[in-house]
């Protein structure tokens, strides 16, 4: 075991554990809830459909965490962007495409604010995120203290077009004799596109590698000649834009906006990233690991939900335990490796 650990990188080992855990849980669900159709491929797809927005946002959070920072404002940003979309499209009659563009511009503006604060004014990212969180949550209420929803043709096409997967053996015939093919939504496709782009960016571009370097050891990065300030600034700027995009995708799932929306989403994103192998100390992380983290969390929720009588608070407790497990695991591995080095 120890040899395996020292040979593999921490990253790889943790992701391996995550994958194994996910497979075990999902398999257990399939076995135990076979009579409740857990084996239906739609259940697997639902993991993505319901969490498309979270996937994008967690990926962006991963990027920020790799650089050594954190952005706890994302939940509130989601609420604000959803409310903005609803307000712009329905009340101000702005065409959907323009509304999305406006939201992303807002994301960029916020990203600039966060970037300047963290990179140039050297303010703790946590506090910057906190101020952003309060600001966004409050502004959501300023736009409208009630609830809004979107019912616009263009938006509906984006949000509600079901992409059927017409593979017969995957289809199910339900009690009413209806044949239901598994389906996906465009939001999932967008999420995967973003994931791939981010993966490529982080692994294969100079910018991506600079992020890892800065997260790993800022002083060394500076000495190496990397423009730390500019890189950090760009990280937060990108984060703002991607979170805005993720919020729009989230909006496609809910088609509505209200003040308390997505409360606590930032913690979900952080938990997903940590379960996926990202370290809050920076320098370590992988967006596909984060994807696995989101899927794991979703699987746990599905398992509790399919049980049918357990309080849903159990899902939170199990996720917390898993979180504890991964955190401690990472710590142990780091220790083993440090010892192996000496």
């Amino acid at each position: 075991m120890k040899n395996l650990i020292t040979k593999m990188s921490t990253q790889a080992f943790v992701i391996m554990v995550t994958i194994i855990l996910f497979i075990i849980m999902y398999a257990a669900g399939c076995v135990v809830y076979a009579d409740k159709n857990f084996t239906n491929i739609q259940v697997f797809f639902n993991l993505f459909i319901s969490n498309a927005g979270l996937i994008i946002i967690s990926a962006s959070m991963t990027m920020v965490m790799i650089s050594g920072g954190i952005d706890i404002s994302v939940g509130s940003q989601v609420a604000l962007v959803c409310m903005m979309m609803c307000d712009l499209v329905m009340n101000k009659h702005v065409p959907t495409a323009a509304a999305i563009a406006i939201c992303i511009v807002y994301g960029i503006v916020y990203g600039i604010y966060a970037g300047v604060m963290v990179a140039y004014l050297n303010i703790q990212p946590f506090i910057v995120g906190l101020s952003g969180m309060f600001f966004a949550r409050g502004m959501t209420a300023v736009i409208n203290t009630g609830m809004l929803s979107i019912a616009d043709k263009t938006f509906d096409v984006l949000a509600k077009t079901k992409i059927m997967i017409p593979i017969d053996f995957l289809a199910k015939v339900n009690k009413r004799g209806m044949k239901i093919y598994p389906n996906l939504y465009p939001s999932v496709i967008i999420a995967f596109l973003v994931l791939v782009i981010m993966f490529v960016m982080l692994k294969y571009t100079k910018f991506g590698r600079a992020i890892y370097a800065i997260g790993g050891n800022e002083q060394s990065a500076l000495l190496m000649g990397l423009n730390v300030k500019k890189t950090k600034f760009l990280v937060y700027l990108l984060d703002g834009a991607i979170v805005a995009l993720g919020s729009v995708v989230y909006c496609m799932n809910t088609c509505g906006g209200f003040v308390a929306q997505a409360q606590g989403l930032e913690m979900d994103a952080i938990a997903a990233a940590v379960i996926g192998g990202t370290s809050l100390m920076g320098g370590v992380g992988n967006v596909f690991g984060t994807l696995l983290g989101v899927m794991t969390k979703a699987t746990i929720e599905a398992l509790v939900s399919f049980q049918g009588s357990l309080s849903s608070w159990w899902a939170k407790i199990i996720i917390a335990t898993l979180l504890a497990f991964f955190i401690i695991l990472q710590s142990i591995i780091t220790r083993i490796k440090a010892k192996a080095r000496d």
């Binding site: 259940v43 319901s50 809910t254």
Partner: peptide, 21 residues
């Protein structure tokens, strides 16, 4: 299913119900 006052939880629950037929 207890949604813990969050809409996203309720949406997930409904999807699970549909999957459970």
């Amino acid at each position: 299913n207890d949604g813990q006052q969050k809409q996203e939880n309720q949406i997930k629950a409904i999807r699970d119900f549909i999957a459970q037929d």
